[in-house]
């Protein structure tokens, strides 16, 4: 992951979140809670289960299409962040070598099945988290957190971080350009240069905080910051929540894949 791609990625997700679609218009609280419930349902499946998980793809696909978000962006990010789950999951086939069945002469062990199950869960949860932020403005999410009674200090911290994230990334980018322009190849990337570079960035950051504080004081700041409320719950929010959660519940308790497969098997016979 290079610096530029990270920067443009976060900017791109941010720009997607200002679209105006049905999904974008939903109350952020509802989207946040429904997505969280979705993830809980997904991870509640036992480790040898794959088929039960498949119908759950409907939720990210709904966010993706109804939110008018390009598939390529999400797919790429899911691939990029997979290493840790892959790293842990790949041991399952090594340690769990009980052959659960043999298909066309190929033995399939429990390890491979649980590994596949981890990867499916991973794809579902990660794509949902990314789609959530692509379909909800960050400010909306912060508003949701505040209204869900998270401490205000924390919510304001998130807002400030997000506000200055873009400013500081740009500043860092300029410093890195200067470093790379004066160093050739790998030189300039040693720890000593790094420490000096990041220390200077830190000092500049603290100085910026001092200037911001002065700017706040100059406009009468006395320790209180108001978080603006923009959204209110509407009928479609309740409808969306009710509908989604019932579907998750049905998918969790009735294995749609098996029921369909069985029916199909019977007709084939």
């Amino acid at each position: 992951m290079t610096f530029d791609s990270e920067y443009f990625n976060i900017g791109y997700l941010d720009s997607l979140s200002y679209k105006d679609t049905f999904v974008h218009r939903l109350d952020p609280r509802v989207k946040l809670l429904v997505s969280f419930v979705f993830i809980l349902f997904v991870v509640s499946f036992p480790k040898y289960d794959i088929s039960g998980l498949i119908p759950f793809f409907i939720y990210p696909v709904f966010l993706l299409t109804a939110g008018d978000i390009p598939l390529r962006v999400i797919a790429k990010k899911v691939l990029v962040v997979s290493p840790f789950a892959l790293f842990i999951g790949i041991f399952n086939p090594l340690f769990d070598t009980n052959v659960l069945l043999t298909l066309y002469g190929i033995s399939i062990t429990g390890g491979w099945i649980s590994f596949m199950s981890i990867m499916v869960k991973f794809t579902l949860t990660v794509s949902t988290a990314l789609l959530l932020i692509a379909a909800t403005s960050f400010l909306g999410l912060c508003e949701a957190l505040e209204r869900l009674k998270l401490p205000k200090v924390f919510v304001i911290q998130l807002l400030f971080l997000y506000r200055y994230l873009f400013v500081l990334l740009e500043e860092t980018f300029r410093m890195l350009r200067a470093r790379d322009a004066r160093s050739f190849g790998k030189k300039g990337r040693d720890i000593k240069t790094f420490i000096r570079l990041i220390s200077v960035l830190l000092v500049r950051t603290v100085e910026r905080a001092e200037r911001i504080y002065q700017a706040m004081l100059s406009r009468g700041f006395r320790g209180e910051i108001k978080v603006l409320r923009r959204h209110s719950l509407r009928f479609q929010d309740f409808l969306f929540a009710l509908f989604s959660v019932s579907i998750f519940y049905i998918f969790r308790h009735y294995n749609i894949v098996n029921i369909l497969g069985e029916t199909l098997g019977r007709t084939l016979r």
Binding site: F160, R163, T172, L201
Partner: peptide
């Protein structure tokens, strides 16, 4: 707030 952003930006610099 800005120190949070700093950690973020700092993590983008590799050594």
């Amino acid at each position: 707030g800005v120190l949070g952003a700093f950690i973020f930006a700092g993590q983008m610099i590799n050594f």
